[in-house]
């Protein structure tokens, strides 16, 4: 029962927040939901398959860009899923050359891709004469909250479930030893591609929701490396081998940032960096690795 506790607590909290009746609470809840959704998606690729993505902001930014560009052209209930789909396709297409790069080179490549896409978007925007975009008439934060909650739940469910599927098992084997995994019949190219694409769908939709929330899009912000960095830190601190990890990691840092961001944003980031390094060296399995130590089979 204790193993399911985090899920229950977060689910209950998620449904309770709107009843508090405060815009501030909704804002925090939105943030928390966002980070949970992003981090859960990240661990599908980077936790389970072992392909660490240092540039996950690219999916967030692409989704935001799509929603912003199609604002008032396509209704939101269509543009959000489409943002996810288009980002999925993007990931699948670039995965052809990208997933052939292994080890640490893949890691820095993901960073380079995020930056490259950012600058391409900046170029495209400037060719339209735009440097940033404002949206008007976006949905209320209350409505957006429910969408984000749904995304967070979906991402958590996916991250939890995948572990028990044949696909998830294949990913774990790929993480352990890709060549050996191939030698037992796991279709590594197909699975890696699928993991890569899957890990981008929900972040894209999250990006879209956040664009609607802030009414604002600016490439430097949407593709900010700090987004990628924060995802990684939450995953490592919470535990990247467990669907409960992102819940804990996101909660910890969302509340930390609520306390520090307004007054000392640089201080907050410095703390983030220090905690990340400390956890990598001392507690690489994160908080979840401590509270729920893996014992025996977990698939």
């Amino acid at each position: 029962m204790t193993r399911a506790l985090p899920f229950v607590v977060f689910l209950a909290a998620g449904f309770t927040v709107p009843w508090i009746g405060s815009t501030y609470a909704l804002g925090v809840g939105l943030q928390l939901g966002m980070w949970i959704a992003l981090t859960q998606s990240w661990i599908i690729l980077s936790g389970m398959a072992g392909y660490i993505s240092l540039g996950h902001a690219v999916f967030f930014g692409l989704g935001a860009y799509f929603v912003v560009m199609t604002w008032e052209v396509i209704p939101i209930w269509l543009s959000l899923p489409l943002a996810g789909l288009i980002t999925f396709l993007f990931a699948v297409i670039i995965s052809v050359p990208v997933l052939r790069v292994r080890g640490p080179y893949f890691v820095i490549l993901t960073f380079g891709i995020a930056e490259l896409v950012k600058y391409v978007v900046i170029l495209i925007e400037s060719s339209f004469g735009q440097y940033s975009r404002l949206l008007f008439g976006t949905p209320e934060i209350g409505d957006l909250y429910w969408v984000m909650l749904a995304l967070a739940i979906a991402a958590t469910a996916l991250s939890y479930w995948i572990r028990f599927t044949r696909f998830g098992h294949g990913l774990l084997a790929i993480r352990e030893d890709e060549e050996a995994a191939q030698s037992i019949g796991i279709p590594i190219v197909r699975y890696k591609t699928l993991a890569y694409g899957l890990s981008g769908i929900i972040p894209a939709m999250v990006g879209g929701v956040m664009a609607l929330r802030t009414n604002y899009f600016e490439p430097e912000q949407a593709f900010d490396p700090i987004v990628s960095f924060t995802i990684i830190t939450m995953a490592i601190v919470g535990g990247s081998d467990d669907a409960r990890g992102p819940l804990l990691g996101a909660a910890f840092f969302t509340f930390l940032s609520e306390m520090l961001w307004a007054s000392a944003p640089q201080g907050y980031l410095i703390i983030l960096g220090v905690i990340l390094i400390a956890f990598i060296l001392l507690m690489p399995n994160g908080i979840c690795g401590r509270i729920f130590p893996p014992a025996g089979s977990r698939i």
Binding site: H169, G170, S297, I299
Partner: peptide, 28 residues
């Protein structure tokens, strides 16, 4: 066709049962 490797390549962080179980889910 299946093979073993001259230098063993175990799935280090998986249990023995899981290592063999996963193979049973794939392959021929």
């Amino acid at each position: 066709i299946a093979r073993t490797f001259q230098i063993v390549r175990p799935f280090n962080e998986l249990t023995l049962l899981d290592s063999v179980f996963i193979a049973a889910q794939f392959g021929a």
